[in-house]
Computed example of a mutant assay.
Amino acid sequence: MNAELSILDLFLQASLLVKSVMLVLLSMSLMSWAMIIQRSRALSQASQKVERFEDRFWSGVDLSQLYQEVKARKHYLSGSEQIFYAGFTEFARLHRSNGGVPEGVMEGASRAMRVSLSKEVEELETHLPFLATVGSISPYIGLFGTVWGIMHAFIGLGAVKQATLAMVAPGIAEALVATAMGLFAAIPAVMAHNRLSHKVNRLENDYANFMEEFSSILHRQAFATPKEQ
Rank of each mutant, 00 (worst) to 15 (best):
V177Q: 08
M151V: 13
K49N: 12
G104R: 08
E69D: 14
L17N: 04
R96T: 09
S29Q: 02
W33P: 01
K227W: 09
G104D: 10
A185F: 10
G171V: 06
A72P: 01
S6T: 15
G156C: 06
K119D: 12
L10M: 15
E69P: 02
G79S: 10
V61H: 05
P129T: 06
V160T: 14
V70N: 03
Y76V: 00
R114V: 03
H127V: 03
S110D: 13
G108A: 15
L25F: 04
G135W: 02
S197P: 00
S138K: 02
G108F: 03
E204G: 11
A14M: 01
I217S: 11
L10R: 06
S78N: 07
I155A: 11
G135V: 02
N194F: 02
R114M: 11
W58I: 05
V101W: 04
N2G: 11
S20T: 14
S59H: 09
A175P: 08
P139Y: 03
S216Q: 10
A173F: 09
M113A: 12
S197H: 06
P129C: 08
A178L: 03
M191P: 00
R39S: 06
L16F: 12
L183N: 11
S216Y: 10
G158A: 14
G156S: 13
P226L: 10
H127I: 00
S27G: 15
V101T: 06
Y76S: 15
V21W: 04
G145Y: 02
E228M: 13
A186S: 15
S110E: 15
D9Q: 12
A222Q: 13
F57C: 02
S64T: 00
P102E: 09
I37H: 06
V147N: 07
Q45G: 01
A159G: 11
T89K: 08
L196E: 04
G87P: 06
F57D: 01
K49E: 12
P188I: 02
S80V: 15
L5W: 07
F11C: 07
G99S: 09
A109F: 04
A86D: 03
V24H: 02
A169N: 08
L94Q: 12
P188M: 07
F53I: 05
P139T: 06
A132N: 12
S27C: 15
E204I: 00
S78H: 03
R93D: 08
Q68L: 11
I187C: 07
I172L: 13
V50W: 09
A112G: 07
S47I: 01
K227L: 15
Q65E: 12
M35Y: 05
E4I: 00
L26D: 00
E81N: 07
L17S: 08
A3P: 00
E125G: 10
A173H: 08
F11G: 03
K227P: 01
A178K: 05
G182K: 02
N209K: 10
L16C: 00
G87D: 06
A166S: 14
N209P: 00
H198E: 14
E90Y: 00
R220P: 04
A189N: 04
F184G: 10
S216N: 14
L8N: 05
S64Y: 04
F11V: 09
H127P: 00
F144R: 01
S20C: 13
I172M: 14
H95W: 11
L63F: 10
A180P: 04
W33A: 07
L17D: 03
I187R: 03
L94S: 04
D55T: 08
R195K: 15
V21S: 03
H152E: 13
S44W: 11
V24D: 01
N201E: 14
F154A: 05
